[in-house]
Design a protein around this nucleic acid. Structure first.
Length: 825
DNA sequence: AAGGACAAGGTTTTT
DNA sequence: CCTTGTCCTT
């Protein structure tokens, strides 16, 4: 092992917090010996290495969380660090919670002072402390993407930016991207082509957006990171406080960091006092550090796997990890390649697929648990057929003793879940859809939160505008503008303008409505933020919310509604109040602000494990970081995975391949890959082609229950396996005529024509087309696979016509007439 | 100001 | 197919 440089316990702190039975460790003995139990040499190295910078390249299933938590525990046990000196950063709250739990399990209560949190919540903590330094208050609100979209939408309208092709969505995307690169309107203006009027308008929009955020005392998600970086750069003495505090910074999923996050880590791990160089801020202020830098920067540990980088589309920069050694000269790199999750067959398939990405460091996962089952492939006629296969197989697995909660079905796009759901409901399979419609994105929940924000941060005009006519109070655009203008004239906030309803010059009915809303908000404020200075009771948030919903008339309006959906909305609001009560139980000291922060930063993906007793359905993206005994990857088709839109994006196909790779490597024991020959999308039936990624899996690993060839071939005499081999893959033009740039090239070169038989997935060059074959109830037909049968009914129109056929042997089936391998007798 | 009728458009996702 | 947004009427 390495020369682990022992670091002296930090001076000036109090009492040992080590739970090692009291005795100080003998020289040479490690207090963390038990932490290394069961670890392989590479993992041990990753736990025990001490130095400025460490990169742990952790392949899927290689035990990285274990290594990370033990590394933290070992720092604490060896008294190399106090809990307060540790900052561990993850991407999701769920991951943070899990890590905290596991560290606590190892070291007990001493885990308490650590910061184990997401990038965003760590930044919120810092910003709440320092907001006053740069024109915000502690009670700033956090705009989620919906909030910021609403604001941008208003600004786009005001600036008539639509005319320049600047839609709200495009503007939001561009601003977000720029913020992730730490650009602001001013710096962007310097590089942009300002002779282009569209660019000028965009810069104007960007600046206006930022002004509005500041006016509302609000940060959007991207700001939380970027503004923290700006804060550190503008106020080095503030940055030094955190640099001195955090001596060990650990970052999980480093391959998913964007530039702003990278810069934040960089700022945090610089030596304190290293900003001694004069810094000319925009205000022209010059800052000199009195003392020369005496301390080192914090030690940095990052964990990641560039093969699992699937968030480039939202700014993740894979170079952060691939160039780590350049960024941190002298960095140690530890490679974890032994996989403790999957069978060798699954890993071999994963390795084979991912090896088609060029420009990647070679890394081969291996395991010693043995080959395991073959991967099962299935091709359905339609997505319903495919879903039926999945359902049948899940039932078979259940009978074989696999728990529902240990099975998962993945798909590329959320819309694919529908067909699966239909079949699952019909088959009475318990399932749970992960991360579908977000609880906190529902309109009624956003309304409830806007009421709370109106109390917590009266400067937030967005929240006020949202609630002012919800429930309907007869206040429309005209009145809102009247109030807004009055507020500007009087130099008060929109919220305070409500208190002067009589001065607004509006009709008596509207005036009464405004006065009522003002009174309700005031009453809620007294409960949640008592002016007298006494502490609000823990239940204040829940009570205040309840009061707001009752007295505002929100509940009444829903109850009076005829719309059936409104009943569900009431339930959702009740749930929201329950969330507030639960928050009070867990955080007796928690304030309204704490509650709003938690709600803004917590996502539904954080309660993923609630799936006890159910099969989990989710997108491939959501699947990252999870594992199941049996995994179904569905819709393995061209234009889906890889997704059509990715084809045009640089690096798109490669990212799609990583996504597929992530899906495969979630499986412990059994992996199923399925697709459909036709897929109904947007009401249109389209013909689907097997995904190119299927070609990349060696034949011997994959057993086709029904291959693409089976579904299309006419011949009933040859075995399915032989059918599968006919017709050559990738064939002449393969229908779509599309060329996918870089992606097909490596395969074509590596596999000259003679060797094609090694691959299981022949992509048929033609899809069957029966034209407008007419069928009527009572007709006898012959099907290539199912034999003879009688048509019961015909439904649908045109290309979507479906024959309901009762086969003599195979039983009832539904067939798409246009493409099914059938003929009329 | 509010509700109904039609057109448009529709990856992936965390925070 | 289904959601979302805009326009038009009352």
């Amino acid at each position: 092992m390495t020369d682990a440089t022992p670091t002296a316990p930090v001076a000036g702190t109090i009492g040992p917090i080590v739970l090692d039975g009291g005795a100080a460790p003998r020289p040479g003995a490690r207090a963390d010996e038990d932490l290394l139990d069961g670890l392989n040499p590479q993992q041990r190295e990753a736990v025990t290495y001490r130095g400025q910078a460490l990169l742990i390249v952790a392949g899927a299933g290689s035990g990285k969380t274990s290594v990370l938590t033990r590394r933290i525990a070992s720092l604490l046990r060896n008294r190399e660090a106090w809990p307060s000196q540790i900052l561990a950063i993850t991407f999701t709250n769920k991951a943070a919670g899990e890590m905290r739990e596991r560290v606590e399990h190892l070291v007990g209560d001493s885990a308490r002072g650590m910061w184990i949190s997401t990038f965003h919540s760590a930044c919120v903590r810092i910003l709440r402390r320092e907001a006053e330094q740069f024109g915000f208050t502690k009670s700033f609100t956090i705009y989620d993407s919906g909030d910021s979209r609403a604001l941008i939408k208003r600004l786009v309208k005001e600036h008539e930016a639509d005319a320049f092709g600047l839609t709200p969505a495009a503007t939001q995307g561009k601003i977000s991207k720029l913020k992730n690169e730490l650009a602001d309107a001013e710096s962007y203006a310097r590089t942009a082509n300002m002779s282009d009027p569209a660019e000028r308008v965009f810069v104007e929009l960007f600046a206006a957006y930022q002004r509005e955020l500041q006016r509302a005392n609000a940060f959007d998600f991207d700001d939380l990171i970027a503004q923290t970086v700006f804060l550190f750069r503008a106020f080095p003495q503030v940055a030094d406080v955190y640099r001195r505090r955090f001596r060990h910074v650990l970052v999980d999923e480093y391959q998913d960091t964007n530039h702003a996050q990278y810069a934040l880590i960089h700022e945090l791990t610089r030596p304190p006092g290293s900003d001694a160089a004069p810094l000319a801020g925009s205000g022209g202020m010059m800052i000199f550090e009195a003392e020369p830098a005496a301390e080192d920067g914090a030690s940095l540990t990052v964990v990641g796997d560039s093969d699992q980088s699937i968030y480039a589309f939202r700014g993740a920069d894979i170079r952060n990890i691939s160039e780590f050694e350049k960024d941190y000269p002298g960095a140690k790199v530890v490679l974890l390649e032994q996989n403790y999750r999957s069978t060798q067959n699954i890993l071999s398939a994963a390795n084979a697929v991912i090896s088609h990405n060029f420009d990647r460091k070679d890394k081969r996962l291996w395991t010693d648990v043995g080959e395991g089952e073959k991967i099962i492939g299935f091709t359905g006629y339609s997505q319903h057929d495919e879903a039926q296969f999945v359902a049948d197989e899940i039932e078979a697995l259940r009978r074989a003793g696999v728990d529902y909660s240990q099975m998962a079905v993945f798909y590329r796009t959320n819309s694919q879940s529908r067909a699966l759901e239909e079949i699952f409901i019909r088959s009475a399979l318990p399932y749970k859809i992960m991360g579908g419609t977000k609880f906190y994105e529902r309109a009624e929940i956003k309304d409830a939160l806007a009421y709370l924000v109106a109390v917590a941060n009266p400067a937030d005009e967005m929240a006020m505008r949202r609630i002012i006519n919800r429930p309907r109070r007869g206040i429309g655009d005209v009145t809102i503008e009247t109030i807004s203008r009055y507020a500007v004239d009087q130099q008060i906030t929109f919220r305070d303008a409500l208190a002067n309803s009589s001065a607004l010059g509006v009709g008596p009915k509207i005036q009464a409505a405004i006065a009522h809303l003002d009174a309700v908000l005031a009453e809620a404020t007294e409960i949640m933020l008592p002016a007298s200075g006494e502490l609000a009771p823990p239940t204040a948030v829940a009570d205040g919310l309840q009061l707001l919903l009752n007295k505002s008339g929100y509940y009444d309006a829903l109850r009076a509604s005829k719309d059936a959906q409104d009943e569900a909305r009431i339930e959702n609001l009740d749930e929201m109040v329950a969330v507030a009560r639960e928050f009070a139980r867990n955080n007796p000291e928690g304030t309204l602000l704490d509650f709003l922060t938690e709600v803004a930063l917590v996502s539904d993906a954080d309660d993923l494990e609630d799936a006890s007793g159910s099969v989990s359905l989710m997108t491939l993206h959501t699947a990252k970081g999870l594992e199941y005994d049996a995994v179904f990857v569905t819709g393995v088709e061209e234009d889906l995975i890889p997704h059509r839109i990715s084809a045009g994006e640089p690096g798109g196909p490669q990212e799609e391949r990583r996504l597929f790779y992530v899906g495969i490597t979630r499986a412990r024991q059994r992996l199923y890959l399925s697709l459909a020959m036709t897929r109904a999308q947007f009401g249109e039936v389209t013909v689907a082609m097997p995904s190119r990624f299927l070609q990349e899996i060696p034949l011997e690993l994959l057993h086709w229950r029904q291959s693409p060839g089976d579904v299309n071939s006419r011949g009933g005499t040859q075995s399915r396996a032989l059918n599968a081999r006919r017709g050559g893959f990738g064939g002449s033009g393969s229908g779509s005529g599309k060329r996918y740039g870089d992606d097909l090239v490596p395969l074509a070169r590596r596999e000259p024509t003679g060797n094609l038989e090694r691959f299981a997935n022949k992509i048929p060059s033609k899809v069957r087309d029966n034209g407008d074959l007419e069928l009527a109830p009572g007709d006898r037909i012959r099907h290539d696979d199912f034999g003879e049968g009688r048509v019961d009914a015909v439904t649908g129109e045109g290309a979507k016509r479906v024959a309901h056929v009762r086969f003599d042997v195979a039983g009832p089936k539904k067939l798409l007439i246009k493409i099914a391998p059938i003929s009329k007798l």
